Amino acid sequence: MDFFFVEYRDPLVGLIILTVLIFVVSVANHAWKLFANKDKEQKLEKFIKKFEIDNIHKDLLRNERLSFGNLSFLADIFTKSGEFEKATQIYLIALEKSKDKNEQEFIFIALANIYFKAGFLERAKEVLLQALKLRPRNIEALKLLKIVYLKLKAYKENLEILECLFELGEEVEKEQEFIKALNLHASNLNNEEKKQKLLELKMSNNTMLGRFIFEKYSLFLGQNFNDICDLLYKQDQVFNLENQEFLEFFYALGYISKDQIPSHFVFKNSNLKMLKILRENSFKARLEFSYRCSECKNIMPLFFYHCPMCYEFNTCKIICEVKNDEMC
């Protein structure tokens, strides 16, 4: 054992032993890096082969004179024109040529978006997981993976992603409660058990969760009129008449008579006032609803909890208009 204690031997011997140890550690570290890089290259090559399709133009695209920027620009053009297969092949070739982590990360995100738009959710998920291996704190990849899991109805995995986003400083608390509600709705519990557990969720100021509970279980828990007005239009149940908005809505639709209206009643909603006047004068009129995303400003014909264009949560604003109803 005294062999390892330098103070008991010639200082030169100790220095030689220390130098040998440093050399051995350096060689081992270098060998490990070579092995890790080779393993990484093999995995990347395996990934590329898994998704690539035979193409007669591959050799042309692999030309060394075509830079990463050239290939990305070309792939982007095909993506915008809807030629997803060609765009995918170009990105895979760019991935094969690239050694830079930032470039590889960019390609993975681009590929994931293409697969997502084309409807290949499992492929999109696999590519996003590859991107997160390169940089686990990639918020863009996490947000897209969150939507992929949502469409795959993988709610538990979705909650894990939301937890990661929360740790990165994103405001996802309301979305977490909403996903918990979706998970409960998809469970094997009976309706009464589901309702009981849904009521335990944090619904304060969570408009999407409140709407979901009303839409699926007809539970009115003080939801804002403007968040559920389109759902109210589809039913003839009258309630919450103490609220001015609910009162004038049901009165305009003819669900309650004038005798049930207070003498001081005055319409505040111009659309409902117009609807009531038109119907009283034998005009055929109805309410029509559209839905605008407050984030990307796109207007959709159907309600959404997550915007189908920008994928943001809780950005749906209901637009109500009075229209001529020729079907009456």
Rank of each mutant, 00 (worst) to 15 (best):
L60M: 13
N190S: 09
V127P: 00
K46Y: 12
E280G: 00
I213D: 14
Y8T: 09
F214M: 08
Y305R: 04
L201W: 09
Q260L: 10
F116D: 14
Q89M: 09
E157T: 06
F246R: 06
T315V: 10
I256T: 03
F283Y: 03
V20I: 14
S282Q: 08
N55V: 09
N314W: 03
A36K: 15
K197Q: 14
M327L: 08
P136V: 02
I77Q: 13
E326W: 07
L44F: 02
N271M: 01
V148E: 06
R211E: 06
L241C: 04
K80Q: 14
L61H: 09
S294V: 10
D59W: 03
L278N: 01
E280Y: 01
K133N: 00
E175W: 12
D325V: 00
K146G: 12
N271H: 01
T79S: 15
E85A: 09
E280K: 00
L145T: 02
E85Q: 11
N298T: 14
Y115C: 08
K297Q: 11
K317Q: 10
N138M: 02
S26L: 15
R211K: 08
F120H: 15
D2N: 10
M208S: 13
I161Q: 10
L74E: 11
H57N: 12
A252S: 15
E215P: 03
V24C: 14
F283M: 00
E312K: 12
R211V: 07
E242W: 06
L209H: 03
C296N: 06
